[in-house]
Design a protein around this nucleic acid. Structure first.
Lengths: 295, 295
DNA sequence: CTCCTGTCTTTTATCGACAATAGACAAATG
DNA sequence: CATTTGTCTATTGTCGATAAAAGACAGGAG
């Protein structure tokens, strides 16, 4: 098959949440907007909902007949993006197996493991190569550079440059910039999360990511923005494979963020740089602790 | 056909230069080394050279019978890398045609223009996307962001950060590091090029690139290194489509490089930063002058 | 005993095809 | 007359196949 209809299935699953018995569904264009897909897909979704008796559909009338049951949902493994599946399989290999730096990466083998064609794997590897973990030999195989200490240092060096630059840009934003409001929101979230006894690792990760994205947006630089993808991936998998002391590390990060926020609000560039630097230093430490390989 | 044998043809063309009548060609592994291809390809090359009577080949004896003629060469358009061909066609479009920012990019159309399959075009676009000039809409087309003023500013901002960091690292290299020798070589080349009345645009470009690569190597950071590819592409095409005052600009750059080199040799970080900054500022100016689009 | 060659296997690069998805346009509805 | 819908076309995402190129290994030459 050419594609696995995962866009359709995802949209369908999300559309189920909109089905309240007795109510009517919105117009096709509105559903497109809401679900983030084309009208072709929306119509496919409606068509199926009608087939299984969730709605009756005739032109503009889309009456919800019954509440959807969990059985109506497509299972998760059918809705996943192919590139995400490949990424996960690939990262599992890099992390779990004794993946030595210098090891060669085989497209066909990886494709078979995931149960996909080689083209998708190739495209994934090309996209992934910007993360600096793999490298291509011309007309030949990919080579794993490895998640080494050196790699972590290089990532953090660039991150630090970018974050310092962004923080300075943020501090200089005019006072009526909407970013300041968002910053205040994030500050409140930080405080509430600190007050909560239980650590919420996923919630923390999301907040952390959004916080840094907000600051980096101030730089208004696409390369800085794009680089954050590298960091996001690194930290995402880092959290997955190194759960020791997650809680205390997160609390510390929250506190550093609060100091960072205070510094930003002061508009004092020197204070900003200091708070930012402090946070970057501990992020570097955190990352280094999870490295297994030497160089 | 699956591939156009361009690796073979390139290797063949370069191998012709090695054929001196009366002499013997080196062993297969040595030729691999020299030509940068596999032994399979080397043997194909030798086989063809024997077929057309340039050499007599029997096991270890590879005697050159006659000097190759220009006719023996494969024409240039058969030896070019497919990805280079695509890049050139793509850049021509971006530059020449009234390519408006926001314009959508069609894979199939581009593929047909180049006379290639869509897969190669897709892979090119994915690789090229790291340059920040195009952007992908999920499940939909690519969008041209455009070679705008804003783009130039963003590139130069990152370049400046990276170059300043690299320059500082360079100045701190131990005195016996081989980089200092290379720097001295480059200095001499700069002086000789300045003394020469005629400007040599290609020679200047090559020297400029090697000079900056040497400095950036001091940072020992793959992301800084990789970013230089962005700069190289930008400036490569920039020079192509904006030839006004090339000469005076190059002379100025040479002089700035010399000041930069002096600063590095002084190990005085403040001087280094100043010289580097000066050079970056005029690079930014140069680039901005060639921009046609507003934001 | 080291390096080279003959031969064979593995892996990549590229193509063309086709289903999924996006998107365009005109007719229909309120 | 502004949306919505029905229908049709355009474009992308993914696959499997195949020739080009890389690479492995054993036997041979010096």
């Amino acid at each position: 098959m050419a594609r696995q209809s995962n866009v359709f299935k995802q949209a369908y699953n999300r559309a189920l949440a909109l089905a309240v018995p007795g109510e009517h569904l919105a117009s096709e264009p509105e559903l497109c907007q809401h679900l983030g897909v084309s009208r072709t897909t929306v119509r496919a979704v409606l068509s199926r909902m009608a087939d299984v008796g969730i709605i009756s559909w005739d032109k503009r009338t889309k009456e919800v007949l019954r509440a959807p049951t969990p059985d109506d949902q497509f299972p998760d493994d059918e809705t996943e993006d192919l590139s995400d599946v490949i990424e996960q399989a690939f990262m599992r290999r890099i992390v779990q197996q004794d993946a030595q730096p210098g090891m060669q990466i085989n497209e066909l083998e990886l494709a078979r493991e995931v149960g996909t064609g080689t083209t998708s794997v190739r495209e994934f590897l090309i996209r992934f190569s910007r993360f600096g973990l793999i490298e291509k030999r011309r007309n030949s195989h990919w080579v794993l550079r490895g998640f080494t200490r050196q790699f972590a240092l290089e990532v953090m060096d660039v991150r630090e440059m970018f974050e310092l630059r962004s923080a300075a840009a943020f501090a200089n934003l005019p006072k009526d910039d909407p970013a300041w409001q968002k910053l205040a929101q994030f500050e409140a979230e930080h405080r509430s999360m600190l007050a909560d006894e239980r650590g919420h690792p996923e919630r923390f990760s999301a907040l952390d990511e959004n916080f840094h994205l907000l600051i980096q947006a101030a730089a208004g630089n696409r390369f800085i923005r794009d680089f954050y993808d590298v960091i996001a991936v690194i930290f995402h998998y880092h959290y997955r494979w190194n759960k020791t002391e997650t809680d205390s590390r997160n609390r510390r990060a929250l506190e550093e963020h609060l100091a960072y926020i205070e510094a930003l609000k002061s508009h004092d560039l020197k204070r900003v740089a200091e708070a930012c630097q402090t946070h970057m230093n501990s992020a570097r430490q955190t990352l280094l602790q999870s490295i297994s390989f030497e160089d």
